[in-house]
Design a protein around this nucleic acid. Structure first.
Lengths: 217, 217
DNA sequence: ACTTACAAACAATCAAGCCTGTTTTTGAAG
DNA sequence: CTTCAAAAACAGGCTTGATTGTTTGTAAGT
């Protein structure tokens, strides 16, 4: 029989609805793009009414910025976990590149490309995102710094290498939209790993006999 | 008194109007973004009526794709010219990086970021752009190949270095939208030039005593 | 009872495509 | 060289459709 769903507190209801709305927003941002992610669509995707949406997020911009902030927080946590695990297990730098590629190309940067143009033309929207992104980048920097400390590499040099890696991956992902060329990306990524490996002369070279792929798929 | 403007042929009128419309389209794509670049705005910016626009370009997509194709052709020509001049004068690889950064960050990649997301969600739009972009990339590849031939470097290696450079620049420009941090970009660019220089061991190292900044600003 | 969460209808806005006129150019006949 | 009808270039209004923010009404929790 239909069990009567336990009486939930307001906080629980509110938090769950918000979460579902934000998740649906990111899904739509990724799947249909920011212009097609309309408030009726978001509400429908989240399985709630548009009224519920407007109750939690008064304007469309509000829910989008909240969703982005939420997404970046989650990604940052995941990255921190990876960084910690990596430092402890002490793998090859290839694994870092593979991990970053995976995380970035699995929605993150596609979603980013949806809102960046809007941020460029909408000052209010931009103002809300700048601190969020700043925190994200600060989180990254902390991970790179810790990585440098663990591997004994120069911190600034490590930051440069990792930031360049991130930028390179961003540029590649941008290209994937209009350039379907698996060989191109694989070749470039292989080349890049080689470069990164040479930047961590001390330890990485030894551990990496090949590329023990575990994270990549 | 008002001189009667010389009687122009249909071809002249048509070509000029089209050009103005396409130029206005790119301007608006850059200045206000693809969603805000409405057909009334484009017509107004070009100084023609909306009727004229619909006469030359039946749909909004048509004028946008045409404008992008036109822009990429112009950029490709400019790059070819630079490549030729560079090969003849034989400068440092730093100059290549500076040039690419300048070209890409002077509207080109910002405009690109406007239409990439749309292409990701609009198959028809994408289908029209794929060949255009393919040609653009082919043009780039030709330039890299010629560069390798002139400097005596390995062609594939050169392509990898230059493609990585392009991707890195793309990623950096994407960041510029939400991360205002001149030092960060300058530092990263300096680091990158260093890397590139090391990839052209034969000639570049000599010419570049320091970094003769001329193009960057 | 009172506040919070949710539902759904409403009004104003605005862009895209279509369609109907008007002007300019063409080219061919007289 | 002039005339004139057809075609191309251009101007601007109209309709439809979709979206956002607002508002009013209802149910669930405190």
């Amino acid at each position: 029989m239909g069990r009567i769903p336990r009486r939930r507190s307001q906080k629980e209801r509110s938090a769950e609805t918000s979460s579902r709305l934000m998740a649906a927003t990111i899904d739509l941002l990724h799947d249909r793009g920011i212009t097609r992610a309309t408030t009726p669509d978001i509400a429908r995707a989240a399985g709630v009414s548009r009224g519920a949406l407007t109750h939690h997020f008064p304007t469309r911009e509000t829910i989008i910025t909240a969703s982005i902030a939420n997404m970046l927080h989650l990604v940052n946590e995941d990255m921190r976990r990876f960084g910690k695990a990596f430092a402890e297990s002490g793998g090859s730098s290839d694994e870092i590149v593979d991990y970053l590629w995976k995380v970035m190309s699995d929605r993150l940067f596609y979603v980013t490309m949806e809102y960046l143009p809007e941020a460029r033309h909408n000052d209010e929207f931009k103002a809300q995102l700048v601190p969020v992104v700043r925190e994200f980048h600060a989180g990254l920097d902390a991970i790179w710094t810790e990585l440098a400390a663990r591997t004994g590499a120069d911190p600034e040099h490590t930051r440069n290498v990792m930031n360049a890696t991130m930028c390179c991956i961003r540029g590649m992902i941008a290209q994937t939209i209009l350039r379907q060329d698996q060989d191109y990306y694989e070749g470039l990524l292989r080349f890049w790993k080689e470069q990164v490996r040479q930047q961590f002369p001390g330890k990485a070279a030894g551990t990496a006999k090949k590329t023990r792929k575990r994270t990549a798929e």
